[in-house]
Design a binder for these strands. Sequence first.
RNA 1: GGAGGGAUGGCCGAGCGGCUUAAGGCGGCGGUCUUGAAAACCGCUGUGCGGAAACGCACCGGGGGUUCGAAUCCCUCUCCCUCCGCCA
Length: 422
Amino acid sequence: MLDLKFILNNRDLVRKACADKHEPDYVDEIIDLAKLRKIYVAERDELRKKLNEISDEIGKIARKKGNIAPLKTKAKGISEQAKSVEEELRLTEAKLDDLLLRITNIPHESVPIGKSEADNVVVRIEGESKKFDFEPKDHIELNEKLQIIDFERGAKIAGSFFPLFVGDGARLVHSLIQFMLHQHTENGKYREIFPPFIANRKTMIGTGQIPKLEDDMYHIEVDDFFLIPTGEVPLVNFVRGETLSEDKLPIYMCAYTPCFRREAGSYGKDTKGLMRLHQFNKVELVKIVHPDKSYEELEDLLADAESILKLLGLRYRILELCTADLTFASAKTYDIELWAPGTKKWLEVSSVSNTTDFQARRMNTRFRSNADGKLHYVHTLNGSGTAVPRLIIALMETYQNKDGTITIPDALRDFFGKEKIG
RNA sequence: GGAGGGAUGGCCGAGCGGCUUAAGGCGGCGGUCUUGAAAACCGCUGUGCGGAAACGCACCGGGGGUUCGAAUCCCUCUCCCUCCGCCA
């Protein structure tokens, strides 16, 4: 969330951010509620002050065994007034807090202004375009012969967009997870976490999925739990409510988790194969950093996500997202898209974001600065490193042979244990 | 699921209706001493809101209640600890 004072002092900037990101603008309501709140606080303070004075007086008289009855009557009246003002204040603050949780983060000044995803900027393209001496098939056609993904049985067991990976398909999934975790942790850079895949409401508010995206989450009503939509949720909330010492920063974490998404309202788009699923696997990277460092940390995080694709020898491009495509919590985001030569499309496999202090303020995660001894919010960053299903699409399509078999790239062989599928 | 015990500032920990502006310690910052450091000693040191400031108000896990007055009493929720039951 944004700081109330910041919103009040930078109204036009916040309004512009809401407009540029195509997010709802609650600035006027917030201004009104903040005014009201200020009036109630002043009233409350005045009444409490009087009441505190009279109560002290009563205490002194009572110790001397004097008559306190007349003062008690007076105090009772003030106490009741104070309670009624406090009730109004509570209601006002509840409304204000709810709106503050629904205001989007401000984009960084470097983020291109845009109307839709068409205005995202291609920063660079990496990797060679692979030459085929035959017409490359897409992953769905390849699977017809290989039978490593079972869409029908997935639909039977859970529903559409819940495929099963079988045999070498399952092996491919877990070897990719192993490979990615190994790359991120081998030099000790990221500390691996194996978190719960279920989160409570406070956790979901902390990273910003709630209240805005609540309908996109799988919700377990009996316990008010949510299935995590990304590993970012447990990893970032690792530090929720904590005051860190500056020496502990930066904190680098990584985790494998499944990700659960209802994808409400997205039917009709990317419906074939592994493009869009309700449950998919992902290795996530998260950084908790000093606010002065977050934009250089963002570049470094992007490089770490890219390292996976370089090692696998895949062709990819980096997009800088325009304002319209930036997520609710993000101030700046790079997407990484893999080239799928059979599907002939760029597929998003990673989204690397700096949320600045937006999540930290929701979570109340601060550090004590060595420079001024005061508390400051940390900055939080997250990036996929990377998502498995679309990585599988690109691998199958890039490394397919004329006979329909798939060659496993060198970097993955020790993890996969074989050179070929099919 | 049942029975007890707990949650207090960055950390530890006392307080159990008004003399608390939350004791004391640790840590941190400043000083004295010292060639320097350590030790010792002295001082300062929570967060938020309002205010130019003085100062005022709120905050002792969350919420509600009793009372003129609540960290303190009552109810409730969450989490942690000990034990019992059940189950991978």
